[in-house]
């Protein structure tokens, strides 16, 4: 490049920078791979945790079922794992869970749905903007506070109506649990309703429908998949709720379908045993894994149901 023709000075050439740029690209590539790896790790950790929980539950339950036949577990009507005459009928605990969850859902589903319809279809903008954060605050209150609220406020109140109501009972715990679940139901339902396109509402109004008819006959069915998902989430919350029941519903295993009685739920029992001084590895201790597995299967069932409902009602509007 230095030799020139007829004295014309050589054009100064920039040294090739290709390798340099390649090198930078190379480090960038490695950096991206590292970032990618950490992102993958973050995502994998949740999956790994789930599998770990399932593994522990299943393997520990396996030990339990070596000693207690599945038939007894499912059909025995007594739950007395700590007595010398031990019985392991999970039905006893499930009845408590079922009754308290039913009471909670009887409160949360109608109220949550009505609130969602009101906020989405009727409330003026300002009301909605003020009400929603307050409602969501309801879901952020620690459940132990709800538990004492049920025990010390709602139960005495209910005792004025039903004087024979015991101090620990499923009714008051269930009702307060219902109040706790309201924001889960209402918030997701409202989002689903608000996502219904305006032209569907206009179509309904144009037919001479009132606001109420439009909300009930057009918007609600159009938002059904979202509303179903909200209900399922509410059910899962109710079944898995622990503190309110441990505090306000009593801890005695009691096979009952009457909400006016005290009874232990699956979750309350697990708390009781986990906090007690049972030796690890004893059959009494193993029961909490079997109970936990039962609980997880129930919530899994509802999650799958919710998934199927969503798919079934998914509509392309």
């Amino acid at each position: 490049m230095t030799s020139t023709v007829a004295g014309i000075p050589a054009i100064a050439t920039v040294p090739p920078i290709v390798s340099h740029r390649l090198a930078r690209r190379h480090t960038r590539h490695i950096k991206e791979r590292i970032i990618e790896f950490f992102l993958f790790l973050a995502a994998a950790s949740s999956v790994f945790t789930t599998f770990a929980i399932v593994y522990i539950l299943v393997s520990e339950s396996w030990v339990f079922f070596q000693q207690v036949p599945l038939r007894d577990f499912l059909f025995d009507t007594q739950w007395t794992p700590l007595f010398s005459d031990a019985h392991y009928g999970i039905m006893v605990l499930l009845s408590g869970t079922l009754v308290s969850s039913s009471v909670a859902l009887l409160v949360a589903i109608p109220l949550g749905t009505i609130i969602a319809i009101y906020l989405s279809e009727f409330a003026p903008f300002t009301v909605r903007e003020v009400a929603k954060p307050f409602l969501e605050l309801l879901g952020g209150v620690p459940t132990i506070i709800y538990g004492y609220f049920a025990l010390l406020f709602v139960t005495p109140l209910l005792q004025k109506i039903f004087p024979e109501l015991p101090g620990f009972n499923l009714l008051s715990a269930g009702m307060v649990m219902g109040i706790m679940i309201i924001p889960y139901v209402s918030s997701i339902s409202e989002d689903a309703m608000r996502a219904v396109p305006m032209n569907l509402r206009e179509g309904s109004y144009a037919m001479g429908a009132t606001r109420f008819q439009t909300a009930l006959r057009v918007v609600t069915p159009a938002a059904l998949s979202g509303i179903a998902a909200a209900y399922i989430l509410g059910i899962s919350r109710a079944v898995g709720e622990t503190m309110i029941l441990a505090v306000a519903a009593g801890m005695q295993p009691n096979l009952t379908w009457n909400p006016m009685e005290p009874a232990a739920t699956v979750t309350a029992y697990i708390v009781q045993v986990a906090l007690g001084d049972l030796p690890h590895g004893s059959i009494g201790y193993q029961t909490i894994f079997a109970a936990g597995l039962a609980l997880m299967l129930i919530t899994l069932f509802f999650n799958i149901l919710g998934h199927l409902l969503r798919k079934y009602y998914r509509q392309a509007y």
Partner: peptide
């Protein structure tokens, strides 16, 4: 009565 720009049948 009115017919809209985009068909808007109800989810029924």
């Amino acid at each position: 009565s009115m017919v809209f720009q985009k068909p808007n049948p109800f989810p029924k």
